[in-house]
Design a binder for these strands. Structure first.
Lengths: 244, 244
DNA sequence: TTAGATGTCAAACGTTCGTTTTAAACGAAC
DNA sequence: GTTCGTTTAAAACGAACGTTTGACATCTAA
């Protein structure tokens, strides 16, 4: 039977693993640094989670389960409040972005690890991790896609899906590198509410844009500069400093 | 003196390393799989590149040097063609996105590895890699930021920087997971030109949006649903399938 | 021919990896 | 008090890791 001490160790492992995976990725994080951070024996991890992949899966389940649920709950709540009328795109985007930005940017101690984790696993190469994540996210993404389709019936569904991927990519990127949103010299942590407002406004305008069929002539007066892309062949075109 | 055979080996190593880093990330790719792919001896890599990090740096330099130059050239060409008038946002975005999408999505054989590499390293934890990449990209990003500022003087600079990060994130995400843009069942590779047009239209609309100061009331009729986010504490809120 | 770079190779260096084994300590039930 | 399932600990497993070594070719310059 699980006593309180056991839960304590299990959670310590999950916390340390979350930090390690966020910092170094799945392959780069080692079990030994995780158990050092959790102050438990190496075998304890295998007792609870079976393997490194099992540990990763538990970490993802603990974080993304509630997060995804919050996103879905937010969408449903807004839909109920709106009654029969389709939601404003801004409301849909808020329901999607607010839970992630909130858990990632607003909380005090070191839950920045969560942010990096969210962003990191979007690019994780591990096939099992990818499959697990896809299974987790598919229903949620489907719900948001349907909501967008109701609000923007004139935009082809395939483009709505693309645009949703753009939003997901930007979100993952921001969560993974929150320092890139900070002002030039300031070290002040970014305000989650402000980022949310800016992202909602930015992407809502994009979503409401009609399908772009221009591509070539959109540059207008610069169209003549479309020379075929050449690959550079010379040696070391850019020396570049190697130190930060 | 470098003979042709030597250059051949050096390039074979870079090709194999690029593929391996794109597939497994920096930590996940092993020197032995790289030399196996390049059909060279293990020591040869150290003869040419000194270390694994040196190899990574050479891979990044070879790809991102020309890519970044193409982006800058495209911007400058459009600026010259436009004369004194500020560029259309669409033109700026095209200059930014077209080289990356072109090298990543359009080429035949296996240069998809380049795409995954571009997307992957945006999330690479390795500090040295991050510093190297930042040094590479800073001047280019600055140029695009200035171009955007001239075209959209009414948008505060800090928000232009944020929006540029959103675009970079979406681009990295798309390059890293090109399959997510494919249609549901179809396996047809995505058309780079179509993605470019859609991204340009989508983000141009976002950039031209005025600063959003609403955040709270933007959801309009759904504002009452803004309950404080609760963290879920119950055990395993979502069982979820563990197999793909 | 000799001296010295220049590339290439097989083999091994010591370390760290994920994982397993073995056993001891624990609390509750009989 | 013994037994039993559960939990922790120390040590070790074989494999793979990044890196180095030393020898062996090959070629140029003196």
């Amino acid at each position: 039977m699980p006593g309180p001490a056991e839960l304590c160790r299990r959670d310590r492992i999950l916390d340390a693993a979350e930090r390690a995976f966020a910092d170094a990725g799945f392959a780069g994080a080692s079990m030994r640094t995780i158990v050092k951070g959790a102050r438990v024996n190496l075998a304890t991890v295998y007792y609870y989670f079976g393997s490194k992949e099992g540990l990763m899966e538990a970490v993802l389940r603990r974080r993304f389960g509630p997060l995804r649920q919050d996103q879905l709950d937010g969408l449903r709540a807004r839909q109920e409040a709106a009654g029969r009328t389709p939601l404003a795109v801004e409301a849909i985007l808020e329901a999607l972005l607010q839970p992630a930005l909130h858990v990632a940017l607003s909380v005090p101690h070191q839950r920045l690890a969560v942010a990096r984790l969210i962003g990191r696993i979007a690019a994780e190469p591990d096939a099992q991790t990818q499959a697990f994540l896809r299974n987790q996210n598919t229903p949620m993404r489907q719900a948001f896609l349907e909501a967008l389709h109701e609000s923007l019936p004139e935009v082809p569904l395939i483009y709505l899906r693309w645009r949703l991927e753009f939003v997901s990519g930007a979100l993952a990127f921001v969560l993974c590198n929150p320092h890139k949103l900070e002002a030039e010299g300031h070290a002040v942590p970014v305000d989650a509410q402000e980022v949310l407002g800016e992202m909602v406004g930015f992407f809502a305008a994009g979503f409401s844009a009609l399908t772009a069929r221009r591509t070539a002539q959109s540059a207008g007066r610069a169209a003549k500069s479309h020379a075929p892309l050449r690959r550079r062949a010379g040696p070391n075109p850019q020396p570049l400093a190697t130190k930060s």
